[in-house]
Amino acid sequence: MGFEQFGVVSFTATTKVEKFVDFLREGKVCGTICKACGAKFFPPRSDCNCCLSDDMEWFEILGDGNLLTYTEAMYAPAGFEKDVPYLLGVAEFKDGAKVFGRLDKSMLEGGITPGMKIKLKTVNLEEGRISYELTSA
């Protein structure tokens, strides 16, 4: 079970950070921290561009974030048609970690405003695929 299980349609089969998907299965959305210099990365990276180290450990993105922006997509690229309409957005969490992804569709009912509190949750998709979503905190 590898990285090709991530998201609605995956375009990447192999990556050194495929453990990201194992963490999703445990309900965690994780980035990486460089053990040598402390640089923090989301999305996770296996190589530190600050100090060139490849010695990384995982950290979980916890707590509430702040929604920076979003859109409701009324059309979709090939392969995503059945999801229309869907929400995409970016939120900022502790230490400046920014997370891009789908927003929980149920958020449309309560109204969405940039600046609102956001938390992350993992979501199981069809055929054993898995992803994460931004949802109201």
Partner: peptide, 15 residues
């Protein structure tokens, strides 16, 4: 855009 971390959500230029 980034095919590893963003395209799996269904990204397109207008969005």
């Amino acid at each position: 855009a980034d095919i590893q971390w963003e395209a799996p959500f269904g990204t397109m230029m207008p969005a």
